[in-house]
Write a protein that binds this DNA or RNA. Structure first.
Lengths: 204, 204
DNA sequence: ACCTACCTACCGATCGTTCGGTAACATCCC
DNA sequence: GGGATGTTACCGAACGATCGGTAGGTAGGT
């Protein structure tokens, strides 16, 4: 076993595209079947190569999951957290966080919260890394709700419970409303934004 | 292979208790690790018998999952749907459905919605049976919201989307707030009821 | 000559499940 | 009372299949 295999130093454009396909297909299969329910044989068949061929693109199954979750968090940070952190009005910030989060789900097929429980298959240090990144996102939700409370706009509620409820409604979109199943993405985003903001705001 | 093995005709009280322990422990492990991530060896070790010993209590791993989901639906129907179906006021009906649902989660440790995705490991006819039972529950949610709409009390929203959001907030309780983790069960139930009803009602 | 992107063949380990068995207990008959 | 018979609740060993992964290799491109 190569203790510290290096990624390929000079991937070709085709190789890079194949690498991305491997990870995208892996994420998609693991959302449907779970991490342990998806074999490397399944993945190899889905991308049209052998199991051995996969190991040219990945270090291990577990490392692949870790990279998928890291990538998903990268997307969340770049496409949800960073664009909204600077919004001064906490209500607008929350609306935009939820709207952008739903869009990320559709754009990348990254059902992060559906893969999130699969974090249990990682080694503890990797689990901790992912947990901290997820918690930073939740922290922004909680901070925004605290600001709303300070403005007298928040209903009487437990902010931690509300934060988890908000994340669950978003997670549920990937499960209950897969792409192309009748409800438009924009409608779904707005329904989710309105559902959650009506739940937490006094005058709404 | 015995094509139609019969359950034991005359289990002893101790045997019956062991049988129930096998199923309870299996449900608990599968919530934590997933169906495919939980081996029969894991389960045997957890209940203190060999793998072969398990097969005295169960027909197969897959059949065991099916029975666990059936049992969970039985509990849902007896402890949530039946007690609330007869409530005339749709708002009170919804409040009680959500409250009782949360209580069932704590009482039975039945994180139904956390095990629900594991339905994919069943054979299609069994999947269909479970799906129909779950959909009946959702149907009561949708019916209640339609009645609220007829009374002019429902916000402008997509009832299907709202129904899935409501179920997701309940599902999230088992994930984010396991028993004994700081938030009291009664508080959690009321927070969840209020979150959801605030989300869907006009004047709240 | 060297590198990338694969492949075949194979490895040790684990999987779900069964086979053939045992210990303990209950029942029946002599 | 004791032996024979049957049942329940398990067990050790083993099975065929699949698992994640590697060794050694090849074709094609630079």
């Amino acid at each position: 076993m190569n203790p510290m295999p290096q990624p390929n130093l000079m991937p070709t454009p085709e190789g890079q595209a194949r690498n991305e396909e491997v990870f995208r297909t892996a994420a998609s299969l693991m959302v449907q079947r779970g991490y342990a329910g998806t074999s490397m044989g399944d993945l190899a068949e889905a991308v049209g190569m052998t199991k051995a061929g996969l190991y040219h693109h990945i270090k291990s199954k577990q490392e692949m999951l870790f990279e998928i979750l890291q990538f998903a968090m990268n997307v969340m940070e770049h496409e949800v957290i960073e664009p909204t952190r600077g919004i001064a009005d906490p209500e607008q910030r929350l609306r935009n966080m939820i709207r952008l989060h739903v869009r990320v789900l559709f754009k990348h097929g990254l059902e992060l919260t559906l893969l999130f429980p699969e974090r249990r298959h990682l080694e503890p240090p990797q689990q901790e890394i992912i947990w901290q990144r997820v918690d930073r996102y939740q922290g922004l939700l909680r901070t925004s709700m605290r600001e709303l409370a300070e403005q007298g706009k928040l209903r009487e509620l437990d902010i931690n419970v509300a934060a988890s409820h908000i994340l669950q409604t978003i997670a549920g979109i990937a499960r209950w409303h897969p792409q192309g199943r009748g409800v438009a993405e924009a409608l779904l985003a707005e329904q989710t934004v309105n559902f959650n903001l009506s739940a937490i705001l006094k005058d709404s």
